[in-house]
């Protein structure tokens, strides 16, 4: 073995090829099967995609680095489940490009935060967390309520999502901007078309309390309120059995 190496270490390209070969094995064995073994991701019939407004909110969540302090992955541990709800299934993040499972809980897990608090609470908390939770160390995000949401290019965002595998239809892409505006204003004439495309359960509200302008706050709160609610799969015992 050592005499072979004695020869190998005299060949720079041999060494380079050896390194690449030896280093590739682990990743190939662990990652490639995740794409081919079917029960890696449970079936979740009826799971919907993010609406354009929620997707925009998700992008704000990414932009502000929320994932650095909040996980979106409830582990299969008793205290995790009792604190945050049913453990997360792979299916629940199957449309998440990229996933936001997180690695640190400086703040609590958010995988099932949707519907847990009112819009008013979320807005007040984002503008000044310490007004709602005095001990909080979360940053204040006042500018989200001041910034108008950029909706013009949402169609292109949905189209790019479709390219990586999210099942958005032509109609969803075509009406992305209108759908985003409609979701933040219950009086908007497009609200009906929006719920037709994304389901009756879609939240259509002035999330930040202001119907005049669609702000980044609208988008982020719309996203937070849908977390854990794109599918009921995690609440169905059959799916859980199949998933484990």
């Amino acid at each position: 073995m050592f005499s072979t190496h004695y020869k190998l270490e005299r060949k720079s390209m041999g060494l380079a090829l050896g390194i690449m070969l030896v280093a590739s094995i682990g990743g190939l064995v662990e990652i490639a099967p995740l794409f081919t073994i079917d029960d890696t991701v449970e079936a979740a019939p009826g799971m919907r995609t993010y609406t354009p407004l929620e997707l925009a909110g998700r992008n704000i969540y990414i932009r502000e680095g929320c994932y650095a302090c909040h996980s979106q992955m409830i582990r299969t541990l008793q205290d995790d489940v009792e604190r945050y709800g049913p453990y997360s299934l792979a299916a629940e993040s199957q449309y998440d490009h990229p996933m936001l499972w997180g690695s640190k809980r400086t703040g609590p897990d958010l995988a099932r935060v949707g519907g847990k608090y009112s819009d008013d609470w979320q807005v007040a908390h984002l503008i000044n967390p310490r007004a709602v939770v005095p001990q909080s160390v979360m940053p204040a995000y006042g500018w989200l309520a001041r910034n108008r949401l950029r909706t013009e290019d949402l169609g292109r965002h949905l189209a790019a999502q479709r390219k990586v595998g999210v099942p958005y239809t032509d109609a969803m892409i075509e009406h992305a901007q209108a759908d985003a505006i409609a979701q933040a204003d219950p009086d908007d004439s497009g609200a009906g078309a929006l719920t037709e495309r994304y389901g009756e359960a879609t939240n259509v509200r002035a999330f930040d309390g202001n119907r005049e302008v669609v702000t980044e706050m609208d988008a982020l709160v719309a996203y937070l309120q849908i977390l854990g609610r794109l599918t009921d799969a995690a609440y169905e015992p059959a799916a859980k059995e199949q998933g484990r």
Binding site: P98, H157, G165
Partner: peptide, 8 residues
């Protein structure tokens, strides 16, 4: 948008 999603 990253090519992979979720668990992968």
């Amino acid at each position: 948008y990253s090519l992979f999603s979720g668990v992968q």
